[in-house]
Amino acid sequence: MEQVGQMPCPLVKEEGEGVKWVRKELRGMDGRFKIANREALIGVALALFNFGWWFFFAYGLGDASPEDYSYVFGFPAWFFYSCIVGFLVMVALVIIVVRWWFVEVPFDEEESS
C-alpha cells in the first residue's frame, strides 16, 4: 500500500481497497485493533457505570420530600453524591483506566509528515 506522494485526500484509486483494508484488519491481523476494541468496551462500561451512579443517587436520595432532605456541605445529599462526588469518581476512574489499561500504539506507518 504505497501511498507516498499521492494527494492527501483519500484517493482510494484501486477498487475496493478501503473495504479490503477493513476486512483484513478486522480479521485480527493488526494487533492495534484488538487494543482499540478493548478500549472502546472500557468506554462503554465507564459510561454505564457513570449513568448508574448518577441515576441511583439522584433519584434514590432525591425522591424524598424536600423537607426531609439531608445536606452535605450545604448541598442536598442527592445532588452532592450524584453530581459532585459522581464527577470526582469518574475523573478518578478515567485516570486509573487510562494510566493502567490503555496501551500506547503508533498511528503512522506509511505517512510521516
Binding site: L11, A36, E39, V44, L46, M90
Partner: peptide
C-alpha cells in the same frame, strides 16, 4: 461529563488509524 471520555474512547485509536489509512481529513 460522559462526553469527556466517551467520544475519544469509542472512536479512539481505531478511528485515528483508519483515518490515517484513508488519508481522511
Amino acid at each position: 461529563v460522559v462526553t469527556g471520555y466517551f467520544v475519544l474512547m469509542i472512536l479512539g485509536k481505531k478511528f485515528a488509524i483508519m483515518a490515517r489509512k484513508y488519508k481522511a481529513v
